[in-house]
Design a binder for these strands. Structure first.
Length: 444
DNA sequence: TGTGCCGGGGA
DNA sequence: TCCCCGGCACA
């Protein structure tokens, strides 16, 4: 299984790397092309403007090797990952062609000097957590590229196309070494001592696995399973990820956080990529500060948990007060869905919650009030009952069946600006209605 | 036939 | 980005 996965993973890493290079070169034109293709009625390809790098042949692909493109050569040594096949027992470890997708078959392999200790793979869950397997492959491919081309200096390479993975290179590498230094299970560097071997370690709760963690889902790779096991939450706390949460849950006996995807928590603003956990620092103070500070809602928190401040009876009362013919029924109420959002895909995570904002008609309309002809829109519109803002903050995932079924939205029952104001008062329409777009005032 | 709005295009 | 409009789907 692993032996079959490794070549595919290598090729995938190469594809990801190339794609990211191209995206940096001609992302704008490519995006326009993709949007046009999505519409299905775009201009013919011959008439589309050819952006910088979007349509032309990429330099370095098929042509002479450019300086930025790595040529064939020895790949730097890299510890084998559990995704890749292990070498036969008894043979000295040497870098394999499978480990570097840019290594040309037939090129001489770099032979480490005899007696070189084989580096142990770092299975630190903190390192693996921030990287799902595809991103890990990409990061590793870019690492392989950089270190192959120019060595360590290339971490700080300039360029507009530098991605986040590239910018975080040194930090991540440092974290790796920290993991090895700390002596976590599986990430222990040879010769390092374990906490059991050294009783001078005081923060043992950081390194112990959480006793309340559920078994990891089976579809997670062997590297990501410790990640799932380290996710925990407790009521009233932020479900920040990693060992903090696991340790906090272990201390408070709290429940487990339902894991829906590896990226979900790694994108949290308080995750280690932005706020590296330093086990030797003042972690208890940090935790206390987190407990002390109120649950400030910065918007991003909504993606991680649902906060309910009202009971179901209040909700049902509010819903029953809406008559079926009431125009306010056109405004989608914040449906009290208690279940967590569905497992997110990578693309949905990169574009979180692309839902249109629920329009709340207020006398201070954001933009319409500034316009002279629309100055009284906010005065006329409140003749309709305004949707009462509730404290229910939910994630309302779009039903996938509606997305894939028809490209056109089914027409809602709500009256639009045209019907409400008529053609005579077209200046009272919302902007979208005037432009023959989807009405932004009376949403379905 | 009226309406909603998608997609394209010009400024 | 703003603005307009052709044209399609739907009630």
């Amino acid at each position: 299984m692993g032996a079959r996965l490794a070549p595919a993973a290598g090729r995938l890493g190469m594809l990801i790397q190339r794609e990211s290079q191209w995206a940096c070169a001609g992302g704008g034109a490519a995006g326009r092309g993709a949007r046009a293709a999505r519409r299905g009625r775009g201009r013919p390809a011959a008439s589309r403007p050819r952006g910088a790098g979007g349509g032309r042949l990429r330099a370095g692909v098929g042509g002479p090797a450019s300086p930025a493109r790595p040529g064939p050569g020895p790949c730097p040594e890299r510890p084998p990952s559990p995704l890749q096949p292990r070498h036969p027992a008894g043979r000295p470890w040497r870098p394999s062609a499978l480990r570097c997708p840019f290594r040309v078959a037939g090129a001489p392999r770099p032979v480490p000097p005899a007696g070189t200790p084989r580096p142990r793979p770092c299975r630190c869950p903190r390192r693996r957590r921030a990287l799902p397997w595809a991103a890990a492959l990409r990061a590793w491919s870019s690492r392989c590229l950089r270190s192959q081309s120019r060595g360590r200096r290339t971490w700080g390479s300039r360029g507009r196309g530098r991605g986040r993975e590239e910018r975080r290179g040194p930090r991540r590498r440092r974290r790796t070494s920290r993991c090895q230094r700390r002596g976590e299970p599986g990430s222990r560097a040879p010769g390092r001592e374990t906490p059991q071997e050294n009783p001078g370690w005081t923060r043992s709760w950081l390194r112990q696995p959480s006793p309340v963690c559920p078994p990891a889902p089976s579809f997670w790779g062997p590297q990501l399973q410790p990640v799932a096991q380290s996710l925990a939450w407790s009521p009233g706390r932020r479900p920040w990820c990693g060992h903090w949460a696991a340790a906090a849950a272990a201390e408070t006996g709290a429940g487990t956080w339902p894991v829906t995807g590896p990226l979900r928590l790694s994108l949290h603003p308080h995750c280690p990529p932005r706020q590296p956990i330093s086990y030797s620092g003042n972690l208890p103070q940090r935790r206390e500060r987190r407990q002390a500070e109120p649950e400030q809602s910065d918007g991003e928190e909504d993606f991680y948990y649902t906060e309910l401040d009202v009971g179901m009876d209040v909700l049902t009362d509010g819903l029953s007060s809406l008559s079926p013919a009431s125009p306010s029924a056109s405004v989608p109420p914040a449906s009290p869905r208690l279940e967590l959002p569905e497992p997110r895909t990578l693309s949905s995570l990169l574009h979180p919650l692309a839902l249109p904002p629920v329009p709340v008609l207020s006398p201070v309309a954001p933009r319409e009030a500034r316009r002279g002809d629309d100055a009284c829109q906010g005065c006329l519109a409140p003749t309709r009952p305004e949707p009462q803002p509730t404290t229910v903050r939910t994630c309302v995932p779009t039903p996938p069946s509606r997305l894939g079924a028809s490209p056109r939205k089914p027409r809602g029952d709500a009256k639009k600006c045209r019907k409400v104001y008529g053609m005579d008062h077209r200046h009272l329409w919302c902007t979208a209605c005037r432009w023959k777009k989807a009405c932004q005032r009376f949403l379905d």
